[in-house]
Design a protein around this nucleic acid. Structure first.
Lengths: 133, 133
DNA sequence: GTATATTTGTACGTATGTATA
DNA sequence: TTATACATACGTACAAATATA
């Protein structure tokens, strides 16, 4: 998808346009799972926007669980994880919510990954799912 | 919790310290569910930090589902919602993930609210939960 | 093993836009 | 209409983590 440009007449904000372009590239495999995205400064140059716009766009994709950002190295496209399946008993309530800061540390949950709760007990949803037998 | 201050010697970054202070105030009811937080500019003044630090802190709390930010409105503390319960059948897989941008629009999902998926069908987790009979 | 370069994170400033009151 | 409040977007600088020479 070379030649994508952001436009002030698109209706959407610049960072959302940048996010849409990157999201499309991920969806069509231009940026494959596990591969690296261009550095922020290169995206700033390519898209001809400010760093705020690029960073806001990347934050959006991170919060959607599409990419993994780590200080010191390049941003990568998330890879689907194998999920452990938890068998549900009777009279059980299953819900979802974002992790607390403590849970983020305790379970090593990346940004953009919610918790699946089974009778209130939290499980990182990128590694666990539940099923009824 | 008057007199809270951020410190450069705390080890944590400024915006995380601001977030921790606000999170504590929400937890202990200083900012009750449904009530308004101080305006960003007032937090900037009270905490004696830059606007970035306040905004990054608020974004963190929003992504944890603790507050609701709306343009033109003051930021409010989230109120727990009554959840519709969905009865699970046999051979059903329940998981959680963040919504896509399209789902955010279609289901009117606020930031910081994940989707509960039942056999791949998404439900906003602030309004739905599942149960086994 | 050390030093250097790269990359993202944090933090300040400023200005303008958009939605609401 | 005016004022308020949050959103977007540009800039700059330095810090921290990682990778590389």
């Amino acid at each position: 998808m070379v030649g994508d440009v952001v436009s002030p007449h698109s209706g959407a904000s610049i960072y959302q346009q940048v996010a849409a372009i990157l999201r499309a590239r991920i969806a069509q495999g231009t940026y494959a799972p596990g591969s690296e995205l261009p550095a922020e400064k290169d995206l700033v140059y390519e898209m001809a926007v400010g760093r705020d716009s690029v960073r806001d766009a990347l934050a959006l994709l991170r919060d959607e669980g599409l990419i993994i950002k780590r200080r010191g190295h390049r941003t990568r496209v998330s890879e689907p994880m194998v999920r452990t399946r938890i068998e549900l008993s009777a009279k059980t309530i299953v819900a979802a919510r974002m992790p607390t800061p403590e849970e983020r540390v305790e379970y090593d949950v990346p940004a953009g990954v919610p918790m699946l709760t089974i009778n209130g007990v939290p499980y990182p949803s990128d590694r666990y799912e539940a099923f009824t037998p």
